[in-house]
Amino acid sequence: MTNSVNRRVRSSQKRQRLTAAAARVLHERGVERTTLADIAREADVPVGNVYYYFKTKDELVQGALSEHSAHLDELTARLERLADPRDRLKALVGAWVEQRDIAARYGCPTGTLAVELDKRADGTLDAEAGAVIRRLLDWAEGQFRELGLSDPGGLSLTLVSGYQGMSLMANALRDPDIMTREGARLLRWLDSLQASDGNL
Rank of each mutant, 00 (worst) to 15 (best):
L193F: 08
L92T: 00
E74P: 03
G153Q: 13
V61G: 00
L75I: 04
R15A: 02
R86D: 10
D38N: 13
V160Q: 04
N6Q: 14
L187V: 12
R81E: 14
R10N: 15
D177Q: 12
G63E: 03
L36R: 15
R33H: 04
H27R: 15
L186R: 04
G94T: 02
R78M: 11
G183S: 03
A77E: 15
Q16W: 05
L186Q: 13
A184P: 05
I102D: 15
E28P: 09
A184G: 06
L155E: 05
Q164K: 06
D87E: 15
G48L: 05
E42C: 09
T2E: 11
F144T: 10
Y163S: 04
Y163V: 15
E182M: 14
E32P: 01
L149P: 00
A121N: 02
E128V: 02
Y51H: 14
I133K: 09
M166H: 05
L173E: 13
V160S: 03
R88M: 08
R88N: 10
R17S: 14
L159Y: 10
Q194I: 06
L82V: 01
G148P: 12
L159I: 04
A64C: 09
A121L: 13
E182Q: 12
K119A: 14
G183W: 05
R135G: 12
D44T: 10
A129Q: 04
L190K: 10
L159H: 05
N49K: 01
F144G: 09
W139L: 03
G142E: 08
D84C: 10
L187T: 13
S11V: 02
Y51Q: 09
A95M: 04
V115C: 03
L137A: 09
Y52K: 11
T19L: 08
L72M: 11
C108R: 03
A95V: 07
W96K: 02
A21Y: 02
Y106V: 11
A172K: 13
D175T: 00
D101M: 04
E116T: 00
Y51V: 03
Y53W: 09
V5P: 00
T180Y: 00
V31T: 11
R78S: 11
V9Y: 11
G107C: 05
L125G: 01
L79P: 11
T56L: 07
T2K: 12
V31A: 14
D58V: 01
L200E: 12
L193N: 07
D122S: 13
N3G: 09
E32N: 12
A22P: 06
Y53N: 04
Q62K: 02
M166I: 05
P109F: 04
L36W: 01
L82W: 11
G30E: 06
A91N: 01
L36I: 12
D151T: 02
Y106D: 08
A22V: 03
R41W: 04
R134F: 07
L117W: 00
R100M: 01
E98L: 06
R88G: 05
L113R: 06
T180K: 14
M1V: 08
Y106I: 03
L190R: 08
L75N: 08
A114Q: 12
V160K: 03
